[in-house]
């Protein structure tokens, strides 16, 4: 499922493709065809991708900076920021540890059912976010299996912070594993085996041999995981209960403001999330560039992506 989100380690190859094909008549279109394709595709890009992004910032500042800042400094907005950061701070490390463990088991060892396991890890990507929220309501909700027991012991999961964290963990579950599995499979296990033969412990091997090899892939997975964790809407919306100041994350706060016709404030909070998206894309592009340029293992990484 996540094929399109995995890192394409092709920074170096990308630069020369255009010159390669535009050099000779046999592999080049007539100028009018070229300009037609360029014109249509760039217009499509501008209308469908660029314009919504621009709209967020313009609408956010429509009523001036003062309204903008007061929307962000509002207590409910600040508590939403806090909750969003908390959810991401729990979900990302959990899925990071899982991703490394899963990639180690899958890439370094042979066992039956490996492909099936990879498919299962991908499952959360193919499940609607709404269903991701629903499953936890069925288990922990008032009418759910554990509902009566939880009520007896006064533990709240649904309509409370733990439910939001659980839903966030579910939707961001595959990100790091999906990134590391092909990368570590392509790298093989010779380097680790050599380290062990030379007397390194398992942990030392991982720390000094494996980790440097996978650091860019790891960072890439973490960035995407974090962006989704902070931006998730559907799944969190189902389990949150929308209690202002308590169970509202940033995307839910945007929805509440919007539904109350406080458009400028809604877009102001939305612009924070849009900034997060732009930072994510910048770091992602930088990682692709770093990973694609000249490191000895970059070739293996390219093969892993293809």
């Amino acid at each position: 499922m996540a094929a399109a989100t995995t890192l394409a380690w092709t920074g170096a190859a990308r630069a020369d493709a255009a010159t390669r094909f535009e050099a000779q008549a046999a592999t080049r279109e007539a100028p009018w065809v070229k300009w037609l394709i360029l014109g249509i595709s760039l217009a499509f890009f501008a209308v469908f991708l660029l314009l919504p992004l621009v709209a967020v910032f313009v609408e956010a500042l429509r009523k001036g900076w003062e309204t903008y800042w007061s929307a962000l400094a509002h207590d409910d907005a600040l508590s939403a920021i806090g909750l969003t950061l908390t959810a991401a701070a729990i979900a990302v490390p959990l899925n990071l540890v899982f991703g490394v463990a899963a990639a180690w088991a899958i890439a370094k060892f042979e066992f039956r059912g490996k492909h099936f396991l990879i498919t299962l890890i991908d499952l959360p990507f193919s499940v609607s976010p709404v269903i991701a929220g629903l499953i936890y309501v069925l288990i922990f909700g008032a009418q759910g299996w554990l509902g009566p027991w939880l009520a007896e012991h006064d533990i709240r999961i649904i309509f409370a912070v733990p439910g939001i964290v659980l839903a966030t963990v579910f939707v961001t579950f595959p990100f790091v594993a999906r990134e590391l599995i092909p990368l570590m499979q392509a790298q093989g296990r010779e380097e680790e085996e050599a380290a062990l033969v030379l007397g390194a412990s398992g942990w030392q091997t991982f720390r000094h041999v494996t980790l440097p090899n996978i650091k860019w892939g790891l960072l890439y997975g973490v960035i995407l995981c974090n962006a989704r964790a902070m931006g998730e809407f559907g799944a969190v919306s189902v389990v949150s209960g929308h209690i202002r100041g308590q169970t509202n994350t940033l995307p839910l706060h945007v929805e509440i403001l919007y539904n109350e016709y406080q458009f400028a404030a809604a877009f102001a909070v939305a612009s924070l999330l849009a900034l997060l998206a732009l930072v994510t894309l910048t770091v992602k592009t930088w990682v692709e560039h770093r990973a694609g340029s000249g490191t000895p293992s970059s070739k293996a990484q390219q093969d892993a992506a293809s």
């Binding site: 890009f45 992004l53 931006g231 809407f233 929805e255 939305a270 999330l273 849009a274 997060l276 998206a277």
Partner: peptide, 15 residues
């Protein structure tokens, strides 16, 4: 191009 992956869906929705 990857903006839709990175932009929270609620933000895309109101935009």
């Amino acid at each position: 191009i990857d903006l839709p992956f990175a932009l929270p869906t609620a933000v895309a929705g109101i935009a």
